[in-house]
Amino acid sequence: MAKDSWNTKALGKALAMATNMAAALAVGYFLGAFLDKRFGTAPWLTLTFFLLGTATGLKMMYETAFGKLEKPEDVRKAVNLKDNLAKMKELREQLKKNQGPTDPES
């Protein structure tokens, strides 16, 4: 893949992360509130859906950064701190490689 499109994708991902999180929280909250009003179960559904929304936001953020969760092992890996640090390092290497030629210091 061209470096150009990698950078553009990175830009898209960076800008998407924040609003994705906000949107997931909002969806969770408003859906919960709507269902609470409908069934009169306040505040339980709001709370549940808000937590689900938060989880969704985190999942979206994780997937944006590290790629889709395809298999159950991926989830185990996703909550494994050591693996995550290794992944971050790998990503940093990738970033370094992709940014390499434009940096005057190297």
Partner: peptide
């Protein structure tokens, strides 16, 4: 030297993302 290089690059990248996000906010 190399270490400083990537640190600067990470800082640059993170800075860019933070700047864009805050601009957005």
């Amino acid at each position: 030297m190399i270490k400083r290089g990537w640190l600067a690059r990470v800082r640059q990248t993170v800075g860019g993302v933070v700047a864009l996000s805050s601009l957005q906010l």
